[in-house]
Design a protein around this nucleic acid. Sequence first.
DNA 1: TGTTAGCACTCTCTTATACTGTTTGCTAAA
DNA 2: TTTAGCAAACAGTATAAGAGAGTGCTAACA
Lengths: 354, 354
Amino acid sequence: MEKTLPERQRLILKEIVDRYIRLREPVSSRMILDDYGLSVSSATVRNDMNDLEEAGYIEKPYASSGRIPTKKGYRFFVDWLIDLSELTKKERLEVVEAYEVQCLEVGETMRQTAFLLGNITEYAGFVIPPRPEETRLDRVVLVQMGPRTVLLVIVSDIGIVEHGIVSLDDDISRADVERITEIINTELHGVSLNAVRGLTLQDRSDGWYERPIRQALLVLGRLLERRSSKRLYFEGVLNLVSDLQRSVPDEAMDRFSGLIRAVQDEDAFVEEIYRKRGDRSGLVVSIGGLRREGMEDFSVITSDYRPHGGVMGVIGPIWMNYGRAMSALSYIANRLETILVSSCPRDLSEGVEK
Amino acid sequence: MEKTLPERQRLILKEIVDRYIRLREPVSSRMILDDYGLSVSSATVRNDMNDLEEAGYIEKPYASSGRIPTKKGYRFFVDWLIDLSELTKKERLEVVEAYEVQCLEVGETMRQTAFLLGNITEYAGFVIPPRPEETRLDRVVLVQMGPRTVLLVIVSDIGIVEHGIVSLDDDISRADVERITEIINTELHGVSLNAVRGLTLQDRSDGWYERPIRQALLVLGRLLERRSSKRLYFEGVLNLVSDLQRSVPDEAMDRFSGLIRAVQDEDAFVEEIYRKRGDRSGLVVSIGGLRREGMEDFSVITSDYRPHGGVMGVIGPIWMNYGRAMSALSYIANRLETILVSSCPRDLSEGVEK
DNA sequence: TGTTAGCACTCTCTTATACTGTTTGCTAAA
DNA sequence: TTTAGCAAACAGTATAAGAGAGTGCTAACA
């Protein structure tokens, strides 16, 4: 671990990164003195800056300009120098309130969370939902609406997963509906959503697979399929606009649309995120570039959240305020865990369909 | 009606608008000759262009440049000269497929529609949901999930409106749940959502308002409140990025964020849209400017859709492809009407809760 | 060995100037 | 009414010059 830099150089590096994040302009030796009040001359600072540059922590946009941090510089900053900044009371309140309307569809909660991440950090937020192979069916609810239409609600161990009014091919009796509900809930409770979907695809003719049940399963499968295709909730790109605009006016649009394009391909993006995290847990900061075209200038902070290995994160420019974003992310990740494991599912698992 | 312009001038105006929409650069007298093969000289065309300019249909960015359309020019073009261009088979298929997964929550359908509008036109799409005062409750579905938790689904004449698992203060029996459902559906069927919400707010102690029912109504009211606060579904802003970028690189970001800000204030935006439409029905084209800051450079095409007076529309740059956008909008409006009035609700109104 | 003062040098950013090419408006003739 | 021809207007680009900010380096100093 190369956390070993001479004390003054550490101070100077920290100041350069802090200041560059705040004002987004190259930092000169003078500025550091003015702000920090080090009791040395600017020449001394310049010497240190030279060392830092040789070591690869900072660089100059052109020969005689102030310095800006390199990726390695940000890395060192995040790993050893950063001050985490707690969320304000008002912000914490905003988070709590957002989750107050509870027990929505899980998808809605994810979208909300992504939105919240974006809003609080003022960057873009995203949530990758738990894998369907690790989410278990709690039960389904079937309610007859018309002669051949039923309301179907799918509830998993993390909440409502899908719902819809669906048409069947044949008329169905109220007794049938109750029997089917009973059977599905007995046989499939605790089975992973993936496995359920698999089952619905097989055209087995086992005993209890009579026609109405087969149809119900088919519908169930179709709903689950739609769900499992949704791999990413991404919100708040627009927060990046003004920031990019202010700091690199001419390239702003290019970078922006680069990011959009990169995120468009959800599968590749999600893969890349998992690849970057490896098997680490907690916060992971990737500085400058997921290795996707158009992402070199962006940093990504991710966190896992407990039930069944979902991941959430924040994407901002490489000069983002890491301290704030990290605090916000871990706070919100925590809240989401609470919502998912405690709120709905506990209520659900208490009562078994009677 | 001033559709009376000399024939050649009409041709020239049409060509100028068409060409400017296509290539986004001032149109010179030469270009018109090259493209159209008029059998006159460029000087003649210039004379006509002069007349058109005096009449206010076109203008010059600077003294010796080609001409670009004014708002009045676009207006005339849309009203008298435009060629509507049908959607391709592939695009129509895309629309139909998008609505295939039927009977979602109404809100989801709206979002989907906005998204679709944006995608097909390559501009931004929006949908204003039907007013809650004109949407009627069909029924509610209550299902017991735990000792004091129930699943509540609200169904209106245009489909599922809200749903969620909600906690009550007291334990509740299965018989209670059935009785409450029965009472609510008998008393409130056909009542407007607004009125239902109003009822739930009153703390009357009429006979049938015993404690569990009051609680159920309270919950019902809370869900409806959340819903009625959602006045606008807006999707596809990002489609505007590349277009703006290509044609006005430096101001692109400003205009873009101007639009964002204008749409942020949902209520004001929705009001403005209604104001612009007045009491007209069908397609309405507003060229350059809802009178909101940051909207001067954008045009808005709106259409109402039948059940209960919702509005949907497309927002694009003032040089947008009006022909395509208008076709797309009216096609999709048609589809949405079909979905809303025929698909779910018919099924629903057939069977009355037994 | 680490620190400081002084100075030449580098590079951005802004402003001024000239040049090219396109397109128009106007005039006079057809 | 239409056309040909020509002067004038202006965007856009290229080039040059000057101001300002900041560095690197050298030589002196503690």
